[in-house]
């Protein structure tokens, strides 16, 4: 027999999903996630996603970009290849600002996207939830809540009973 990933419940509206998630959270479930066709702030709060590490990643990446851009311009024009150009000083910092700015944005932007992929664990070629034939509707007009088997409170029958109250369909998903 396959190992169980968790219990998946399907809802037909986001409000019933929110209520079910609230109830499950109040009971004490933590290893759970909801799957919806569009973002919803309230749901993120219920499931405990308040903060993100992305702003910090962006800031650090941006600072690296600043140092890289400014450093490149300075190093090239003052150290590696000093050349008098139009009587401007070797360290003509006002002229270095645009490139420094662009590298800051470039590094920060790449930082955001790579950070996003890293935090979300994407790309992910396989995920057990896709074994459920109706799970594809999570990207259309259906709403899913999955309580995972490694939650300390997990008990398949009880979870099924709990989710069954609001859901239109409850199943077990295997790995």
């Amino acid at each position: 027999m396959n190992r169980v990933y968790g219990v998946l419940a399907e809802f037909d509206s986001i409000s019933s999903l929110i209520e079910a998630a609230k109830e499950a959270r109040d009971i004490g479930f933590r290893k759970m996630d909801a799957y919806t066709p569009f973002p919803n702030e309230e749901l993120a709060h219920i499931l405990g996603y308040h903060k993100s590490r992305l702003p910090l990643i962006t800031l650090i990446a941006g600072l690296i970009g600043t140092v890289t851009g400014a450093g490149l311009c300075y190093w090239v024009h003052v150290i590696a290849y000093p050349l008098n150009f139009g009587g401007k000083p070797l360290n003509s910092w006002p002229a270095f600002v645009p490139i420094t700015f662009e590298t800051t944005i470039l590094f920060a932007g790449i930082g955001v996207v790579l950070g996003f992929f890293a935090i979300c664990g994407l790309p992910q070629p396989y995920h057990p939830l896709f074994n459920d034939p109706r799970f594809g509707l999570a990207s259309n007009d259906r709403f899913f809540l999955c309580i995972e088997a490694d939650d300390p409170y997990y008990n398949e029958d009880k979870v099924k009973q709990l989710l069954g109250k609001k859901a239109v369909r409850v199943t077990t998903v295997d790995f």
Binding site: P39, L47, L54, A108, F116, F117, P125, Y126, H127, L129
Partner: peptide, 28 residues
Amino acid sequence: AMGWRGSVKHWHEHEVASLLLAGLATPL
């Protein structure tokens, strides 16, 4: 799609990332 499954956690990060990129793209 990289295995996107509409997880609420992913949506949350997605929104943050979009706002951050928007914040960068505006001065850009």
